[in-house]
């Protein structure tokens, strides 16, 4: 009897330890980013760092303003959401409620594949197809722009939005839909007036998840956005928070390198905020 108990406790201990490993990594990254990110912010001054519109890290008189990166990340993410959410949302309603079994299988498979494509491949296709296309279509000297990045991001966030929305829509009790149909509402009316409102917290969670994916993406946007530290313009070359860190890290030193850590810290805070929002919606959709 006693031995059994000891074994149980031992296994519990192992599981607890493994669980704590994950927590440990999160803590480690947080602490490291804060420690590494604070010095440059101190030296540059937080207002100057966040709101100066000039980033010239290698100039003889360097300037470390990251407002262009913050705004580019915000605009880029917003643009991706504006394009991606309607497409993803309607696709999820179609797949969860309307699609015949065969079409559903094919489209769901394609969505899963889309989720599995490495971001560098998105970037490559964007670079070879999208960027020249934009250049020709809009008659601008270079197609590598915020606009190109928005389109790539919009496609990249589709799988998260579609999958999470489908889960939310499928969790709507069949009884709600039956009640609506029995009142003489058509199936499409039923889905939009009963199923979607009933799933709204889950769908909101899907959108927030999409925001998180978009704001954290680096590789694909670096390849299509031109990467110049300008204030964002739809058809101008821009640099995101993520790409600002990635593009200078390899050759940076001194304050410049410290400032890159500070950028990472700002990005990290954005992600934390988004995660808090995500947890809020997920919790509400469970209730």
């Amino acid at each position: 009897m006693k031995k059994q108990r000891a074994f149980e406790d031992f296994v519990h201990g192992i599981f607890l330890f493994l669980g704590l490993v994950t927590v440990g990594f999160v803590l480690l990254i947080t602490v490291y980013l804060v420690i590494a990110g604070i010095p440059a912010i101190r030296e540059i001054g937080i207002l100057n760092f966040l709101f100066n519109i000039k980033w010239a890290s290698t100039a003889s008189e360097p300037s470390y303003g990251i407002l262009p990166f913050i705004l580019t990340s915000v605009y880029g993410t917003a643009g991706a959401i504006i394009l991606g959410v309607p497409v993803g949302f309607l696709t999820s309603v179609y797949l969860a409620k309307l699609a015949p079994e065969k079409i559903r299988t094919v489209v769901s498979g394609a969505v899963s594949l889309l989720a599995g494509i490495p971001s560098v491949v998105y970037g490559l296709v964007g670079m070879m197809v999208l960027v020249p296309g934009i250049r020709r279509l809009f008659h601008i000297p270079d197609g590598a722009s915020l606009f190109a990045a928005i389109i790539v991001l919009a496609i990249m966030i589709l799988p998260s939005i579609i999958n999470v929305s489908i889960t939310a829509l499928e969790a709507v009790p069949r009884e709600y839909e039956d009640a609506s149909l029995a009142l003489g509402a058509t199936p499409v009316e039923t889905y939009f007036r009963v199923s979607v409102p009933a799933a709204k917290s889950g769908i909101a969670a899907a959108v927030v998840l999409g925001v998180g994916r978009a704001i954290g993406e680096a590789m694909a946007v670096m390849m299509v956005s031109g990467n110049a530290p300008n204030m964002p313009e739809l058809f101008g070359s821009v640099r995101f928070l993520t790409t600002a860190v990635a593009s200078e890290m390899s050759y940076s030193s001194g304050l410049q390198r410290q400032a890159l850590f500070s950028i990472a810290l700002v990005l990290f805070l954005f992600i934390m905020l988004i995660n808090a929002a995500l947890n809020f919606f997920l919790k509400r959709s469970k209730e």
Binding site: E175, Y176, A179, L181, A182
Partner: peptide, 15 residues
Amino acid sequence: RKEIGMVFQKPNPFP
């Protein structure tokens, strides 16, 4: 279905 209404076994008001 508007003419012939229905009440279900389990109460199912919309949320």
